[in-house]
């Protein structure tokens, strides 16, 4: 197994080197780089990765909902015109400082914490963190107690309040269970980027960057090591995998 992992890591690094080589980086041009290679079926997620995001709120317009729209399409989240119970994996937050009038707009989703409160409180272990840092809900053993929703400081989770139809094959949803952003784990495992990040880069402000925080050669790792970034509610010590700039 370890040999396989090493082979896989080697392939990934080779891929990233090629990807990096062919990526054109110039001032004012959004960096669009594939950050991951596909993970072979049957291969477990590796603790060598820590998938994360960097979101620059200075590039995020209040009017832009590209990430939200892309998420709904990707995950098949159909609203029932019931805002209080309809699921939202990602939402745009408008933040203003009442003393200065300074305003920010930024997307907030599951922060994929390294020490997730939702995983700690889940009685059955349905809330879980993959080795690569992605926090998920195993809907086979979620009993729908919603304790994770009480525990999440980011209000990132939704309860499935009604029967579901036309679900995406990669996102089985079940009435009576809890759900949240999966960081598009199905895409990541296929070597692609999360839908929100892709949409932000193609039709949004290019505010979102996805990548492997544990890979020093990744763009996200380089930026978080050289630029000031912030974690929402960082004082709670949950070590979110999503970092922000400009807030």
């Amino acid at each position: 197994m370890s040999t396989d992992n090493n082979d896989f890591d080697g392939q990934r690094r080779a891929f990233l080197q090629v990807a990096g080589a062919v990526t054109v980086v110039a001032p004012g041009v959004t960096l669009i780089a594939a950050q991951a290679s596909a993970r072979p079926a049957g291969e477990p997620a590796s603790a060598a990765n820590r998938w994360g995001m960097l979101i620059d709120s200075t590039k995020c317009s209040p009017d832009c909902k590209a990430c939200v729209t892309a998420c709904k399409q990707e995950m098949g989240l159909v609203g029932h015109d019931r805002p209080r119970t309809d699921a939202q994996y990602i939402r745009k937050l408008e933040v203003s400082d009442p003393s200065t009038g300074m305003r920010h707009s930024l997307p907030v989703m599951c922060q994929h914490c390294a020490k997730p409160a939702c995983v700690d409180v889940c009685p059955t272990g349905a809330s879980m963190k993959r080795a690569d840092g992605i926090v998920l809900v195993d809907r086979h053993i979620c009993i729908g107690c919603r304790y994770c929703m009480m525990a999440c400081p980011y209000k990132a989770r939704s309860f499935t309040h009604e029967d579901q139809t036309d679900q995406k094959p990669y996102l089985p949803r079940g009435k009576g269970t809890v759900e949240a952003c999966t960081m598009c784990v199905h895409r990541i495992d296929a070597g692609r980027q999360p839908a929100c990040v892709e949409a932000c880069q193609s039709s949004g402000g290019g505010a979102m960057l996805f990548g492997d925080l544990s890979d020093p050669s990744s763009e996200i790792a380089k930026r978080v090591s050289t630029e000031t970034t912030t974690r929402i509610r960082g004082e709670l010590g949950l070590d979110p995998g999503v970092r922000y700039q400009g807030i």
């Binding site: 009685p123 053993i141 009576g176």
Partner: peptide
């Protein structure tokens, strides 16, 4: 519960870091 039919799951899957599981 959202899934009361899964009471057996709650009785057989324990995350001992959860105060709910202790309870």
């Amino acid at each position: 519960l959202g899934r009361p039919d899964r009471l057996a799951v709650a009785m057989t899957h324990f995350n001992f870091k959860s105060i709910f599981a202790w309870n």
